[in-house]
């Protein structure tokens, strides 16, 4: 986490004054492009052995399946870029999802059962941010403690009772866009989690690239000292990052809770690792201060696609985790090699 990295800021800056060809080269060697390539390759190979893999339904399911993880990974991306970490996301998703379901079955308006968990997530994020930025407790310690508190607290309060019988209009994640026919092309009904995932990811990517605060996150993560010298308030940035992260976790929790007719009011095991893995495979934090939310989203989709592919091509499910581990290593290594080449 604390590897002193001499590389600074966005690599794309190098290319600004160069020609189209070299711009393309930079794009073609970016983590996002590599991931896109891997996803396409995976679709091609598995689709070749079993065409049903490429059926509209399965592709939508692959995108939909990890959408809530991709949403949480948006926040995680910022957290990791700022040289922090949040390992309490899984527990927080469990708690906020339970809050959402409880509101819905206790007669509160549906919009409040969607909105309250998101705001609550922001509040929890602010608390974490305050402890990290102002009380100077390392984020891994704060979130490790919070993970225990949320996990144990949730069971204490709910006794593990499942939440069922939500009103019909509650299931946000099961809603779909209307089918549109545009210029003779039929656009199928897209599940709402996919729409939310894409919109949120793009908004975050643009914000991080073009707004002063967004750029400051990279600066804080890349070289906190330099950032401080150039007048950026590190504390304020870290607060901001954790609040945004909390809001993202809140949205992810609502998507998580509204996709099925039962809310298992416990903490989903290992969810935080999936979120962190998505961010990391997406190219975040190799050197600290680098990475985008688009990469994280593609990584979340890739993980979902692999999970589906393993079922499709009859690979023993015993090996899933080993495959994921090798995958993380390979993406990280190619990323390192690529960086070395572009620097040379």
């Amino acid at each position: 986490m604390t590897t002193a990295a001499p590389t600074l800021g966005q690599p794309t800056r190098l290319s600004r004054s160069r020609g189209l060809a070299s711009r393309f080269l930079v794009f073609a060697t970016s983590q996002e492009f590599v991931l896109l390539l891997v996803v396409v390759l995976l679709f091609a190979v598995v689709g070749n052995t079993n065409p049903r893999y490429l059926a509209e339904r399965n592709v939508l399911n692959i995108f939909n399946g990890n959408a809530y993880i991709a949403v949480a990974a948006v926040g995680m991306t910022m957290v990791i870029i700022s040289r922090n970490i949040d390992i309490s996301v899984g527990s927080l998703i469990g708690v906020l999802g339970t809050v959402s379901g409880s509101l819905a079955i206790n007669g509160y308006p549906i919009w409040s059962s969607w909105l309250v968990p998101i705001l609550l997530g922001g509040v929890v994020g602010a608390v974490i941010g305050f402890m990290v930025a102002y009380l100077r407790i390392p984020s891994i310690v704060v979130t490790l403690g919070l993970l225990s508190i949320l996990k144990g607290g949730l069971i204490t309060v709910t006794n593990g009772a499942w939440i069922t019988d939500m009103p019909d209009t509650y299931f946000l994640a099961q809603m779909r866009t209307p089918e549109i026919s545009l210029l003779g092309i039929n656009i199928p009904a897209i599940p709402s989690p996919i729409v939310i995932m894409i919109v949120l990811t793009l908004l975050a990517a643009l914000w991080m690239r073009y707004s002063p605060t967004g750029r400051a996150i990279y600066a804080v993560g890349g070289n906190a000292e330099a950032a401080r010298l150039s007048g950026i308030s590190e504390k304020r940035i870290i607060m901001t990052v954790f609040i945004i992260n909390g809001l993202c976790v809140g949205i992810a929790a609502v998507l998580w809770a509204t996709q099925l007719s039962i809310i298992q009011s416990t903490v989903p095991a290992g969810l935080e690792l999936q979120v962190i893995t998505s961010a990391v495979v997406g190219g975040v934090s190799i050197m600290g201060g680098v990475g985008t939310t688009i990469g994280a989203m593609l990584a979340a989709i890739l993980l979902s696609a692999i999970n589906s592919a393993l079922v499709f091509i009859n690979v023993s499910p015993y090996w899933f985790r080993a495959v994921v581990g090798v995958l993380i290593l390979i993406t990280v290594l190619t990323d390192l090699l690529r960086r070395r080449r572009t620097q040379a």
Partner: peptide, 23 residues
């Protein structure tokens, strides 16, 4: 030797070693 940060390396091997154990 490869300069991958410890958090990421061991996150990957966390999955890898557990996967090997299961496999």
């Amino acid at each position: 030797r490869l300069g991958v940060p410890p958090l990421i390396t061991t996150l990957a091997t966390l999955a890898l070693y557990r996967g090997l154990a299961e496999g």
